[in-house]
Simulated scan of single mutants.
Amino acid sequence: MELRELKYIAAIGQKQNMAQAAQELYISQQALYKSLRKIEDELGTTLFYRRENELLPTDTGQIVLEKSTKIFKYINQMHDEIAATKNLEQGKVCIGLPSVVASMYMPEPLIQFQKKYPNISLRTVETGGNALAGMVTAGTIDMAIIMRPVYMDTLNELPLIRNQVAAGISPSHPWAKRSFITIKDLENTPFITFDETFNMRAQLTERFNAEHIYPKIAFEGANCQFLSDLSALSDNILVLPRPIIEYYAREPVVTLPFKPAFIWELTLVYPKNTFLSTASKALIRHIQEYFSLFD
């Protein structure tokens, strides 16, 4: 049975008159009568019976009318929801963020987005960049902001911020007057940095391996304020992205870049060759526009 035929049955049930139903449907009475007989033959039962000048539903006809009413209700609801989604009046989107990115960069753009689209449900997930890339690929979150490079060819990238990983030291440190440090400088020097859930840590490990160095990591973790405070109290070098060192420092700090440069870039990743909801597209566009102000 086609949807058009359900509309025919609904019109007959509402008007209880073949001529009036045909007029409502803008078809001839004969065409409507033939369609009704076809439907009844297909179902193997009579849907209406005549009482004087009225067409009333049989028991099976009543069942079809009740189900038709629900079907049309769901169809109308579907059209309403599609229209609302297209107009960004509703929708859902989930973005993954490393905790440091969440605290340093994202409160303002996310609040702006919620104010602009108050009916879109916006959810965040916080963990390390390596884990977030896998979650985007698996489809458990819609997008994430992580550190480059991105090793998964299943993800699209939109670069957002470019800076450097640096060494943070106190102004009284013997290296304070230097203009840079190298990876080899850390060979016998205890330092503090991110744990292994972070992409930056993986890249740092690659640099040590390339130089055949076994680093002395005094402390590692994911909480930037905690790592910064540990460095200040212990006088251990803090190896983190420069903006993070400067943001969380409670006391004066000197930041030394690495030579060769250890680039720190944030990029927005989302799946390739897959459907993106209207809400996801809106958030991607909003984040791009916000971070363009950093250029």
Rank of each mutant, 00 (worst) to 15 (best):
I181G: 05
F198I: 01
P271W: 04
F113N: 03
L238M: 03
L43N: 08
T189A: 07
I111S: 01
E265L: 02
A11L: 06
T193I: 03
G128T: 04
D41L: 14
N163S: 14
A133W: 00
F72L: 14
L3D: 02
Q112M: 13
I287C: 14
I161K: 03
I145L: 00
N17I: 15
V253H: 00
E246R: 07
Q164K: 02
V254H: 02
E24V: 14
E2T: 11
P171M: 02
D229T: 11
R201N: 14
A222R: 05
F180G: 05
I141S: 01
E52D: 09
L227R: 04
T137R: 04
S28V: 10
T140Q: 07
S28W: 05
M104S: 00
I145C: 02
Y290H: 12
P159D: 01
P159G: 05
A21I: 07
L283I: 15
K92N: 15
I120V: 13
D41E: 11
R207I: 08
E196M: 11
A22D: 00
A131Q: 13
F291E: 02
N236M: 09
L238C: 14
P241Y: 02
P118E: 02
F226K: 12
P257R: 13
Q62M: 13
T46L: 05
L56S: 05
A166N: 01
Y26F: 11
E206R: 15
N87S: 07
A249G: 07
S292R: 08
T137E: 09
P118S: 06
L47C: 08
K115A: 14
I213A: 06
Y26N: 12
E157I: 11
L25Q: 08
P98D: 05
P271F: 08
F194Y: 13
G91S: 07
E108S: 08
Q23S: 09
F294R: 07
L110N: 15
N209L: 15
T69D: 06
E81G: 03
L276R: 10
G61M: 07
K86P: 08
P252S: 12
L268N: 03
I192T: 06
T154E: 15
F226V: 09
I263Q: 07
L160D: 01
K86C: 09
E42R: 15
I39R: 00
Q77K: 10
D142S: 09
